[in-house]
Amino acid sequence: MKLNRLGFGMLLLVAALALGTALAGSQEPAKHRFKMGKKKDCIACHEKRTPKVFKEWFACDHGLFNVKCAVCHGSVGDDFTLEPVIARCTGCHADQVASMELPTMKGKTCFTCHAAHALSPHGM
């Protein structure tokens, strides 16, 4: 799938807006957008609300092995993060997380190469 120039421009705009809002001085961490009153499986909503994300996750090994949303994104409380902190990968990928300290990995995260949700090896 290719992104046209307009799409790319929109993406940059969204990213810039996100960054701008952040730089505006809010100290609040990212929150899950909806309060989870009911004790549901994340998939119950996200299969419909973020179908692309769901499909990418479901089709990859994390989906097959039921490595569900909370493992990477935390709970829907204060520890929720949109972008997973890589320490959360340590449980299963300790060596790989440790390798992020190497000089060649400077400035990178796991998701620099492993596309979020699909998590295919090295962007393939």
């Binding site: 993406l11 996100a18 960054l19 972008e83 998701f111």
Partner: peptide
Amino acid sequence: MSVSRRNFLFTTAAASALAAL
């Protein structure tokens, strides 16, 4: 540009935003 590049940009932007937060 491939999907992975788009994801890369998006996650980078999101990471930057979070870092600033």
